[in-house]
Simulated assay, not measured.
Amino acid sequence: MSKLTHLDDKGEARMVDVTDKSVTEREARAEAVVRMAPETLRMILGGEHPKGDVLATARIAGIMAAKKTHDLIPLCHALNLTSVKVVLAGGDDGASIRIQTRCKLSGQTGVEMEALTAASVAALTLYDMCKAVDKGMVVDNLRLLEKKGGRSGHWRAPGQ
Rank of each mutant, 00 (worst) to 15 (best):
Q160Y: 00
V54F: 00
L124I: 15
A118Q: 09
E27P: 12
T109S: 15
I97V: 15
R35G: 10
E48S: 12
I99M: 02
L4H: 06
M43S: 09
T40F: 02
M15Q: 15
G107C: 00
A65F: 08
T19P: 04
T57I: 14
H49A: 09
D20H: 10
L88P: 06
C76Y: 08
L7Y: 05
S152D: 13
S96H: 03
G90E: 00
D134K: 00
L75G: 09
E12C: 11
K67D: 06
L142K: 02
E146H: 04
L4G: 07
A119Y: 03
G159F: 00
E112Q: 08
S152M: 04
K148V: 11
V139E: 08
L105K: 10
A123H: 00
L45T: 14
R42S: 09
D17L: 09
R98W: 00
A157F: 00
P50G: 02
V86D: 07
T24A: 11
L105P: 04
D9S: 15
D92A: 13
I97C: 09
P50T: 05
S152A: 13
A58V: 10
K135V: 04
L145N: 02
S120T: 15
G46D: 05
E48R: 13
R35H: 03
L41S: 05
R156M: 12
A58W: 01
A28H: 06
T69N: 04
V133Q: 06
R59A: 03
L126V: 15
T69L: 07
I44A: 05
V138A: 12
M137F: 05
D134S: 00
K148Y: 01
S96N: 07
S120M: 14
I44P: 11
K135P: 08
L75I: 14
H70V: 07
T5A: 11
E12N: 15
A89R: 14
M1Y: 05
T125V: 01
A157H: 10
G46Y: 05
S2F: 13
W155P: 01
G153P: 06
M15I: 10
L45G: 07
A95Y: 00
E114M: 07
M15S: 14
T109P: 10
A65S: 05
P158S: 09
A95K: 14
W155H: 11
E146L: 11
R102A: 11
M43R: 07
L75S: 11
P158H: 05
D71Q: 14
K21H: 06
A65W: 03
G90A: 15
H6G: 09
V23I: 14
S106C: 12
A119L: 06
L124N: 10
L7H: 04
T19L: 09
L7E: 02
T125R: 00
V111H: 06
M64G: 09
R156I: 15
M129L: 15
G107K: 01
V139Q: 08
G11R: 09
G149Q: 10
G136Y: 01
G150A: 12
E31L: 12
L145V: 13
S96K: 05
R42P: 02
V133Y: 03
E31M: 13
G46M: 08
A89Y: 01
L88R: 12
A32D: 10
P50H: 04
